[in-house]
Amino acid sequence: MSSIVDARGLSCPQPVILTMNEIKKVQKGEIIILVDTDTSKENVSRAAIAQKWTVKNIEEEGTGYRIIITKD
């Protein structure tokens, strides 16, 4: 069961803060993050990698992106 972080419409640095909060909460597994700018996509990916999570997939969804990050 993956958790979802909806960061659409939020400006810097909210998408990263919400992602980091979720990473701290679940520790491992899968998190889906919804963002709507390329900047947020890059920032969230960069933050996830820095936390030793893997960016499993990024798909375009609507006008934004659906980022899936995982950690075993």
Binding site: K41, E42, S45, R46, I49, V55, I58
Partner: peptide
Amino acid sequence: MPKFIQFFA
């Protein structure tokens, strides 16, 4: 460099 991050980033 991961493909989802473009060069300038």
